[in-house]
Design a protein around this nucleic acid. Structure first.
Lengths: 296, 296
DNA sequence: TAGTTGCTTGTTATCGATAAAAAGCCGACA
DNA sequence: TGTCGGCTTTTTATCGATAACAAGCAACTA
């Protein structure tokens, strides 16, 4: 059976939406709500039905009116809104990166399924999707093997990353000055400066900005394989940032400075300068990952 | 329930092995057979049991003796030795590349499952693995969409291919003349010349040689992500070769000539010459794929 | 004593069923 | 006439069961 996490998430989002609206206001149409919450109208109706039956909303003809304030404890708990497959991802990454997994270790589907409280199918599906990250390996009829989050892994990952990003960065040198890309770059530069100004409080916001910045560079010449690869980078860094908090503020401040130098180089449209700034920043990012204590 | 294709394949392989041995010869140990057929001893024993019960073998103490000639019709039919997941792969590629699938088309799991005679799980698993080829796309809770085997696809594929292969080919210029790689390269060159000499009869063997040649080049500096990407190339070309037989002999003869020029360039260890030969061959390979009638 | 076989236990591949969610249909209303 | 909402149909996510296969154990033989 499917989990009803889509419903529960939509329910919570709808509560937020309704809370933001004064009492006695009529709600938008089901189609609009469906678009706003990114779920099907079927799910919207299920949520609305529940809200009406709880008396938060009142049905008047075709309209639904906000009847009273939403109690603060009406939301579903966050743990209930996580689908089985998301659950598997988080738990698996934790198992792999924080547990005592060793390179070469056998991965047991049934065992993980029980540990994570899901069916074996969910594990299999995750492992199949996860294979492309290059950390596990399959032997047909005989299960999966963990290859290890090793130094080699980080080196291979960054070799490709550099190959791709140098190719994209080089394109900037050829771009027409009227290209809308420059506006977007200026925009990103401003965001970097703003973040740098309040780095002490907001250093945790860098992870997201970093992600957007590199995706932006690689998007000048769109290629689905590069985009796919960048998902690997994002994923690895997501968990890296989450679990390696050491010197985080310091690290991010350095990275922002490198980004700004990189942006200057891009704006100069000087091939040499671009290549240098790109290499320099990626080398430092690689070092950060290599320093990660979990890497052995 | 699992299919018993492993058993059936092992059975056929064992028949071939037994046929190659004179009557009254004792068979090797179960462990040796297991290694020879790349299946577990459990499966070996199941096969041997059947062969004994059919009277092809005779148990004498601990030894199993070849008792009589294997009838030519003893093998399982090839169709019986294809596991569900292999079945799905072949049928899906046929459905996608030869049917009337259109870019943007919805892919229906249950429908395909029925069409291919497998459970829905098998289809899901295949689609998840197939996603990395960049030809399909998933919308959560709402199925898969076929993106189309388009010109853009071929362009993006070859852009990466060129990026990777130029990087590997460039390494050859730096290699020490005593490196074992040169021996291997000479070996491959000889295979090309042999094939060229009898191109009229053996032009179909090129596909395999092509695959080995490019994998060899990319292996000078091993990187799991490049190897993974090369699987995509191999896969696409596998089906391309299988279904586009037009001018095959002619095409392959040209490609061999390009390979030989490429090999010359590598041996010269001249950066410029290597880059030129590599680009030239890949451009022509791209053109071959683009000319494929199924590309729209 | 190392390698063998018979037997037992652990693990994967595959199916079918079912509730959740999406998508389609159609009359009604504004 | 186009959007809306009630209802029906289609499709996906997830589970648990089961036979096939792999791997481990222990007694045996050469």
């Amino acid at each position: 059976m499917k989990t009803d996490t889509v419903y529960k998430q939509a329910f919570n989002a709808m509560l937020d939406l309704v809370s933001g609206v004064p009492i006695e206001t009529p709600l938008p149409s089901e189609n609009e709500l469906s678009a706003a919450l990114s779920v099907s109208r079927t799910t919207v109706r299920k949520v609305l039905g529940e809200l009406v039956s709880r008396g938060y909303l009142r049905q008047e003809g075709r309209q639904r009116i906000v009847a009273r304030l939403i109690p603060p404890d009406a939301h579903f708990a966050n743990t209930e809104t996580i689908s089985a497959s998301e659950q598997v991802e988080t738990r698996f990454m934790e198992w792999m990166l924080r547990g005592d997994t060793r390179p070469g270790q056998q991965i047991n589907e049934l065992d993980l399924a029980r540990q994570f409280g899901v069916g074996t199918t969910g594990i299999r599906e995750f492992l199949n999707r996860f294979r492309r990250f290059g950390l596990i390996e399959k032997r047909p009829n005989a299960g999966w093997r963990f290859k290890g989050f090793t130094v080699d892994y980080a080196m291979e990952l960054f070799e490709i990353r550099e190959l791709f990003e140098l190719r994209s960065a080089a394109v900037f040198a050829e771009l027409d000055p009227t290209d809308p890309v420059w506006r977007e770059l200026a925009n990103l530069e401003a965001q970097h400066r703003t973040l740098l100004a309040s780095i002490d409080e907001r250093f945790q916001d860098f992870s997201d900005l970093d992600n957007r910045f590199h995706r932006f560079i690689n998007a000048v010449l769109p290629n689905r394989f590069i985009e796919d690869f960048y998902e690997i980078i994002s994923f690895i860094f997501h968990y890296h940032y989450q679990w390696n908090k050491q010197d985080e503020r310091q690290r991010n401040e350095v990275a922002i400075a490198e980004h700004l130098a990189y942006i200057e180089a891009l704006k100069s449209r000087d091939r040499r300068a671009i290549e240098l700034a790109c290499r320099r920043h990626l080398a430092s990012a690689k070092q950060t990952l290599l320093n990660s204590t979990r890497l052995r």
